Simulated assay, not measured.
Amino acid sequence: MVASNAIYSGLIRLHILHHASKEPIFGLGIIEELGRHGYRLSAGTLYPLLHGLEREGYLRSFEKRKGRHARRLYKVTSKGRQALREAKSRVRELFAELFEDE
């Protein structure tokens, strides 16, 4: 049995914050990035995550126009950077325990 995305939702959020801290991200781009790691997210799953992270102050979105086309980009905020730093420390500790017997 394969675990659902619900099991990994926290890790997916951290992955989103990680990439948004490197450069602005957009929905389809992050869906493809997560797909490279084996996560199959639909737009109907991803966009509520992005909107929630923005509502909570971890991401900020803005529109970038290229000719007639516009794309909504997301960038990490200072609150998001701080949360990512703290999460990395906690994840490191938890994962160390998960793999201590291997």
Rank of each mutant, 00 (worst) to 15 (best):
Arg40Ser: 09
Tyr74Val: 00
Glu23Cys: 03
Glu63Ser: 10
His37Pro: 01
Phe62Lys: 01
Glu86Cys: 00
Phe26Tyr: 15
Tyr8Pro: 02
Ser42Cys: 04
Ile7Leu: 13
Arg36Thr: 08
Arg36Phe: 05
Glu93Arg: 12
Ala83Cys: 08
Ala83Asp: 14
Lys66Pro: 05
Tyr47His: 12
Ile31Trp: 00
Leu46Met: 14
Leu46Phe: 03
Arg36His: 12
Tyr47Trp: 14
Glu97Asp: 13
Gly67Thr: 02
Tyr58Cys: 05
Tyr58Gly: 07
His18Ala: 03
Glu97Leu: 07
Ile25Phe: 04
Ser61Asp: 06
Lys75Cys: 06
Leu49Asn: 04
Ile30Ala: 01
Gly67Leu: 01
Leu46Lys: 04
His18Tyr: 15
Glu54Gly: 04
His37Ala: 12
His51Gln: 13
Tyr74Ala: 00
Leu41Met: 13
Leu49Tyr: 11
Tyr58Glu: 01
Asn5His: 11
Leu94Ser: 09
Phe99Ala: 07
Arg72Ile: 11
Val76Asn: 10
Gly57Leu: 05
Glu23His: 05
Leu50Gly: 07
Ile7Met: 12
Ala3Gly: 12
Thr45Leu: 11
Lys88Ile: 14
Ala83Ile: 01
Arg60Val: 10
Lys22Phe: 11
Ser61Leu: 03
Leu11Val: 00
Thr45Ser: 05
His15Glu: 15
Lys79Ser: 10
Tyr39Leu: 05
Glu54Ile: 01
Tyr39Phe: 13
Leu53Arg: 06
Ala96Met: 10
Arg68Trp: 06
Tyr58Pro: 06
Ile7Arg: 08
Ala20Thr: 08
Asn5Glu: 09
Arg71Cys: 14
Ile25Ala: 04
His18Gly: 02
Leu53Asn: 02
Ala3Ile: 01
Lys22Glu: 14
Ile30Arg: 08
Leu46Asn: 08
Ala20Met: 03
Asp101Arg: 07
His18Cys: 02
